[in-house]
């Protein structure tokens, strides 16, 4: 997808990106610096994601947000100075975002997602969306998909978080390290002469759009069997997205008690609807879903940032297609839904 532009890295780039080039190679770095990224939603998770992507050395990052900076954003959003409360969140993030890496072109877009035409989203190589409703996510996902552009989305509620990726039809290379013995002469009997050789293999991964992943049919036996070894994070996500759609907001720390009751009720409805085992979605997963906890934003933003790097550099297997962070067990895992 991203053309590997043939211009060599400058000395300044080589110096600043030295350590990561040693990890993912010069080709990946060249692909990164040719890629254009759109980040939607400049809450704590958006800021974490933006930081990681800007540091990696992409060509450009556009920060899109039409909301005003609120006091509560400051508790997880480190790109916005505290004295900019009331200003547009994307614009308020610009200065610090640019300072992270002056070699990346960082801009702000203040129009609402719903006011932007489809073509807008396809001018980027990859889109990362946070804080949107399911319907908005699906629209952007489908627009990207039709133009063969990559789409990621994610959210953090309290300490819980997820990421979804639709890389459409994704080709990538994977490095496999092998050990082999080498002889340096016909009579060389020393057995310590071993070399590690890494070979690169080409692979391909096929993705599905978000609506497929979120409408997985739990009556099917292969999904039922997942319940047994199961982690309920997928359902926690469904409940939280429904809450956002229904109430047009996230669970509110100031209404912790009543919102928790609402969430537990929605949980019970979902359990009934999908015939899930009783007690499968425990209460404690739905009680720490208020605000955005900085540690969780760092964790999920780190995962999204790394997936963007993998996607645009077309190196190493990307996650297909959902990642969940379950804070109760402190486990992070990947599962494929909707295929």
């Amino acid at each position: 997808m991203v053309e590997n532009n043939e211009v060599e890295l400058s000395e300044a780039e080589a110096e600043q990106y030295d350590r990561q080039i040693r990890l993912w190679g010069l080709e990946s770095q060249k692909r990164l610096r040719a890629s254009k990224v759109l980040i939607i939603g400049l809450c704590g998770l958006g800021a974490e994601t933006a930081k990681n992507i800007i540091l990696s050395g992409v060509k450009s990052v556009c920060l899109l947000d039409n909301e005003k900076l609120k006091e509560i954003d400051l508790y997880s959003q480190f790109l916005t100075p505290p004295d900019k409360v009331g200003e547009n969140r994307a614009e308020a993030s610009l200065q610090r975002a640019r300072a992270l890496n002056p070699m990346v072109d960082v801009t702000a877009e203040t129009r609402a997602v719903d006011d932007l035409p489809d073509e807008y989203f396809t001018t980027f190589d990859i889109v990362c969306a946070t804080g949107l409703k399911q319907e908005q996510l699906e629209r952007i996902n489908n627009v990207c998909r039709d133009s063969n552009k990559k789409f990621l989305c994610g959210d953090v509620w309290g300490m819980f978080g997820y990421m979804f990726a639709d890389l459409v039809d994704h080709e990538y290379s994977e490095e496999i390290v092998q050990h082999k013995a080498v002889k340096r002469g016909p009579d060389d009997t020393e057995k310590n002469a071993r070399e590690t050789v890494s070979i690169t293999v080409k692979r391909r991964a096929i993705y599905v759009p978000l609506q497929n992943a979120l409408s997985a049919d739990w009556r099917r036996p292969e999904l039922r069997s997942r319940l047994r070894r199961g982690d309920p994070s997928y359902f926690v996500l469904k409940i939280l997205l429904r809450f956002r759609d229904e109430y047009n907001r996230n669970p509110d720390p100031a209404k912790r008690k009543s919102d928790t009751e609402t969430l537990l009720r929605m949980r019970d409805e979902l359990v009934k609807e999908l015939s899930l085992p009783a007690g499968f979605i425990s209460d404690d997963l739905l009680t720490d879903v208020y605000g955005i906890v900085a540690g969780a934003a760092a964790v999920v933003g780190g995962v999204i940032g790394q997936e963007v790097v993998k996607a645009v550099s077309q190196r190493e297997p990307p996650h297909n297609n959902m990642f969940f962070f379950n804070p109760v067990k402190c486990v992070g895992f990947v599962e494929l839904y909707g295929q």
Binding site: R19, Q20, R22, L23, E48, K51, N52, L55, S56, M159, V293, A294, G295, A296, A297, A298, V299, G301, G302, V303, G305, Q306, V309, P327, C330
Partner: peptide
């Protein structure tokens, strides 16, 4: 080699 994302994840887990 050290990269931003792995550091961010580990530091996030550490504070949690």
């Amino acid at each position: 080699p050290a990269i931003a994302t792995a550091n961010a994840i580990v530091a996030g887990l550490a504070v949690l």
